[in-house]
Write a protein that binds this DNA or RNA. Structure first.
Lengths: 329, 329
DNA sequence: CTGTTAGCGCGTTCAG
DNA sequence: CTGAACGCGCTAACAG
């Protein structure tokens, strides 16, 4: 392995000079800079991130915490989009990301988790979809030992930012468009989780609309589960005019139930996952750009690490209509 | 940050002794081991992986190379399953994984890629679904600088293992069961990619069956694309008895085409993705356990790193029938 | 069985 | 503007 020392020797300068060239320090003559770069090229020198991290105490390593059930044959489109967005942006910024699942952390206590990240040289955390019962993670975040960006969860502090779309507004908007278009006033609203942050916000949006349009809204929580949404629809959709769901997956469940019940009711979703297309239906929904959200989270985290203060970032959303052909074409 | 030195002082032993305790070296008396462990607990010491890696030259870092189009609203179930399986196993073995996408590497040349991995202290690569035109990655692998496990691609050497199901057999089996059950002898076979490894193997299985049962098989390559499979089906399915696809995604495309054409033909898939359930159809297919395959790949890679020689590992597959309710229940 | 001594490859003063 | 020297936290021979 060719090291910085070899480069220095080859270029006829001191090690520190090479280091300075590498890290773009000022006060290096263009001439020596050239010499050094030439030597680097000739020797095929590769700066060793590990040594650099040890010495500088800056690792540039982030952890992306995701909530996926490892055994379920679940539909993991959203986590995957987060991963893609985060990794690409991290690469761009010269950082690297390790992906961690909530399930792994659930097997550890706060201390172990902190130690795990610490020993790995993790400087920052991006936590996706934290809910109120994820106490361990919550405490890890609050320990303040890591800069953190929370996606879809509140919590801003000096070293914690929060990033999400305006869930209340989005739910309000999409539901309004949907209701005005499909008519009807007796609505079945299948919400997310009780105590879920985004769920509550979306619920508020729904309530606001109900008040505004004088709708009768019957609400149940489906836990973002397709199956549960299906059950709820079976049970309560019969005497309603339309169904509004707090996620696309639940909307699919609702649609399946309607098919089984052999009745038609318009359905409205939320998230804009491409999976919807496979359900073969046309539907109003809110589209979130998960990749972009994750990318912004990485940038935000880089900012926190560099010393900026935490803040709340609201991402844009879009109202769309997913159609059968959207996926295929 | 409390370091190994502090622990040593606190326990009244030498630094190296602590190190030995940490790494479970032999020849340490139970007594001093206790002392050291006590000190570790009291001080809340966290071994620094980075320093350890620098010193020992063993990083325990693997890269998982995945082929996902970053911009496509693609269906990423399979990559996600690989990620989950690999990460969980890696954690279990005390290694860590960074995920890398083919697209990132395509922007680099061989040298840059090797350097990138080297500088990150990557010791091993798990490459999923390498195809013949991925020349850069191919060369990186052949450079022999990294231990490598190839999932779904051939190539065994001293420091390279290959791991995959028996594609020929699986295609043969599922197609046979499918054909015998649904009847008919004029088959449209939508293969994967020309020059794709798994594609060719599956094709061989199909040919063997055709020969054995005296089937007439009309073959087109759909490039594992849903849209392409759809086009092919539109064009050629009319005068066939059944359609066999080299992937579930293409099977979905075929089904959609059949719906559009308003004709019925039985369809057979391959992979066993849960996504199939959303298409709302019942279908024969081959089920692969992607999580398990990835987990085995990690283990295999760990073995290679420890000095074992490369080899070929054949994973089991299953013949299943995906039904409408499989996903939901 | 334990302690001493060298580094691993790099970043960073601080003299020159 | 440059270079010598030290140390990051740990592992790995070697002595004892």
């Amino acid at each position: 392995m060719v090291s910085i020392r070899d480069v220095a020797k080859h270029a006829g300068v001191a090690i520190s000079t090479v280091s300075k060239v590498l890290n773009n320090y000022p006060n290096i003559s263009a001439e020596t800079k050239e010499k050094v770069n030439a030597a680097i090229d000739e020797l095929g020198f590769v700066p060793n991130t590990i040594a650099s991290a040890l010495s500088s105490k800056k690792t540039g390593r982030l952890a992306l915490l995701l909530d996926v059930n490892r055994h379920a044959q679940s539909v993991d489109e959203i986590p995957m989009q987060y991963i893609i967005g985060a990794i690409n942006k991290a690469k761009e910024l010269g950082m690297d990301i390790i992906t961690v699942f909530f399930t792994m952390i659930q097997e550890m206590n706060v201390d172990e988790t902190v130690r795990y990240f610490q020993s790995q040289g993790i400087e920052g955390l991006i936590v996706c979809g934290l809910s109120k019962q994820d106490v361990t993670i919550r405490r890890v975040v609050r320990s303040g030992r890591f800069k953190t960006v929370l996606i879809d969860a509140p919590g801003v502090s000096n070293d914690t930012s929060s990033i999400h779309i305006d869930n209340e507004l989005a739910q309000y908007e999409v539901a309004k468009k949907f209701v005005l278009e499909s008519g009807g006033s007796k609505i079945l609203y299948i919400a997310g989780k009780k105590n879920g942050y985004v769920s509550e916000e979306r619920m508020r949006g729904m309530k606001r609309l109900a008040w505004e349009l004088g709708l009768t809204v019957y609400t149940r929580t489906g836990g973002f589960s397709e199956l549960e949404a299906r059950r709820i629809t079976m049970k309560y959709a019969g005497n309603k005019d339309a169904i509004i769901c707090a996620s696309d997956l639940m909307a699919i469940g609702a649609m399946k139930a309607l098919i089984d019940m052999d009745i038609y009711r318009p359905v409205c979703g939320f998230d804009g996952v491409s999976l919807m297309g496979y359900a073969g239906k046309q539907m109003h929904t809110v589209k979130q750009d998960f990749q972009n959200i994750a990318a912004c989270a990485v940038e935000e985290l880089a900012g926190l690490i560099e010393g900026r203060s935490g803040r709340e970032v609201i991402m844009p959303h879009e109202l769309i209509r997913i159609k059968y052909l959207d996926v295929i074409s």
